[in-house]
């Protein structure tokens, strides 16, 4: 009775050990996903002229970015599927629909960046100008956000572009796959309390997490 009992204990211990080692091997690559912060992406900055909001030297051209490579994509590739998202002023476009040849789409989730652990299966909006997945206009005061990413925190006549906290963009990429991103600042070097007289605007700081295995979990 007692020998059989000990034998079975030993057997169970061995099984547990084997399972533990094998599961460790499987877990390792999944734990490597890390959020990357892109700082000061220039989205057509130009200083104000004598009659704001007109700007001197504004090109009205977008800056393109690929989550897959983590790099800015040259403007020559704007008609390809090599980019996912592009920025100009407060306009943000995704590579699909009226904005590009890709299969991209985007939607907002409410939460902190860490809380978004899975990309939804559906619900991605495709740019269909002038209505785009992400609006370039501010959230009207007191309104509930729909597709706005910023609100005006300036006093009186001034405009300060402030990304609304807790708005996480989940992006379906141009060539498939998913990423989540959070816009952190619209001003160069991401000042805590931006001042539109002093700080240089149209400089995006955002963090994103790209799932390279094509799955929806982050």
């Amino acid at each position: 009775m007692s020998t059989r009992f000990f034998k079975s204990i030993w057997f169970m211990a061995a099984v547990v050990l084997v399972l533990m080692f094998s599961s460790c091997e499987e877990d390792e690559p999944a734990a490597a996903l890390e959020a990357i912060t892109v700082r000061n992406l220039n989205a057509d900055h130009a200083p104000f002229g004598p009659n704001p909001p007109a700007r001197v030297g504004e090109t009205k051209k977008f800056t393109f970015f690929s989550f897959r490579t983590g790099q800015i994509v040259t403007r020559a590739d704007s008609a390809t599927v090599n980019w996912d998202v592009a920025f100009q002023g407060t306009s943000i476009i995704f590579n699909s629909g009226t904005s590009g040849p890709g299969n991209a789409g985007a939607q907002f989730l409410s939460g902190s960046f860490e809380e978004v652990t899975e990309a939804p299966e559906s619900g991605y909006v495709v740019d269909n100008a002038p209505i785009r997945a992400v609006s370039s206009s501010p959230l009207p005061p007191g309104a509930t956000p729909t597709n706005q990413w910023w609100q005006n925190s300036g006093t009186g006549q001034s405009t300060v572009v402030s990304p609304i906290a807790g708005r996480i963009l989940v992006v379906r990429l141009a060539q498939g796959g998913f990423a989540k991103m959070e816009i952190l600042s619209y001003y160069k070097d991401a000042p805590v309390t931006p001042n539109n007289m002093r700080d240089i605007d149209r400089h995006y700081t955002f963090r994103y997490l790209y799932q390279p295995n094509g799955g929806r979990t982050f």
């Binding site: 959230l139 609100q151 925190s153 006093t155 009186g156 402030s162 906290a165 805590v192 309390t193």
Partner: peptide
């Protein structure tokens, strides 16, 4: 919700950017 005082100084709002309500993390 203030425009400015009589001498034209801009009154910095207490609310820090991020949300539009007054919370304990504001100034």
């Amino acid at each position: 919700d203030l425009i400015g005082n009589i001498q034209g100084e801009v009154i910095p709002p207490s609310n820090r950017p991020g949300n539009s309500i007054l919370d304990v993390h504001d100034d």
